[in-house]
Simulated assay, not measured.
Amino acid sequence: MTGAGSGIGRATAIELAGQGATVIVTDIDETTATETTEMIKESGGEALVVALDIGDESSVRMAVERTVAAYGGLDFAVNNAGLASHHRQLDQMGLAEFERVVHVNLAGTFLCMKYELPALQSRGGGAIVTIASNGGLYAIPHAPAYVAAKHGIVGLTKVAAVDYAPDGIRVNAVCPGPTRTPGFERVAAGTDMVAMQEAITRLGRMATPQEAAATAVWLCSDATSYVTGIALSVDGGRRA
């Protein structure tokens, strides 16, 4: 579970543990990852914390190797880690920022899958869920790097689903709309952002991290054993 130190990542790690999984809790911020791990253990679950920078290939490789060494293999992976970009139009964005956002979000997801897939093959199959965004399905104004990266993640997910289906590996993407994570709450504090988002959402409210997490865990489960290669909106009807 990447990016498990907060928000959707933390909620997914906790939900996975609640369903009986042993969870490898990874994040670039080892302190928040440790907090998630302690929450899981306090609830009776089993978890191991691993510091992980998904933009660093050696870090990704070592995280997967440590998982396999500790527990004998890998059954599921949820790739959630990533970062947002500054709110600006394309011609106002520097190349360095564009490359950084795409590197972490898209290349980082690629690197995770590069090492997760052989581990799943060795296990005889399994599932990968990538946490993309509704920005992977349509445009978000003033977010060119983020949207480009998230579209790339959806495409990468579909290619992996096709290529690794013969190995019994399912690969799907979850595409959340705006979600009331702690990060969103910090950005929205003192503004009317929540009201604006609720006004354009058919269900009349924003998602909780737990709702996105439940979808990711469902896609890992046997309940979706015939589902692969999809990009599933979790957006309260906005895309409809």
Rank of each mutant, 00 (worst) to 15 (best):
Thr181Glu: 03
Gly94Tyr: 10
Glu46Gln: 14
Leu219Glu: 04
Val102Asp: 05
Leu156Arg: 08
Ala96Glu: 15
Ala195Cys: 10
Gly124His: 08
His86Phe: 10
Val227Gly: 01
Ala11Ile: 07
Gly126Tyr: 04
Asn79Phe: 11
Ala212Lys: 00
Ala148Val: 02
Ala161Trp: 07
Phe98Arg: 02
Ala11Asn: 06
Leu16Ser: 11
Ala96Ser: 15
Thr26Pro: 04
Glu185Cys: 13
Gln121Arg: 15
Glu38Asp: 15
Asp75Gly: 07
Thr215Ile: 13
Ala132Val: 05
Met93Pro: 01
Leu16Cys: 14
Tyr226Glu: 05
Glu35Trp: 08
Tyr146Leu: 09
Gly229Pro: 00
Thr67Ala: 11
Glu198Lys: 09
Ile28Tyr: 02
Gly7Arg: 02
Thr2Leu: 08
Ile131Thr: 13
Val129Pro: 02
Ile128Thr: 02
Met206Gly: 03
Thr31Pro: 00
Gly45Pro: 01
Val187His: 13
Leu90Val: 13
Val162His: 13
Val60Arg: 01
Ile200Arg: 15
Gly7Lys: 04
Thr109Met: 06
Lys158Ala: 02
Lys158Cys: 00
Lys150Pro: 05
Thr67Met: 02
Gly204Tyr: 06
Leu120Glu: 05
Asp56Leu: 08
Leu156Asp: 06
Val217Ile: 03
Gly7Glu: 04
Ile230Tyr: 13
Ile24Val: 15
Ile230Asp: 09
Val50Ala: 09
Thr67Asn: 06
Ile153Phe: 09
Val217Glu: 01
Val49Gly: 04
Ala240Arg: 12
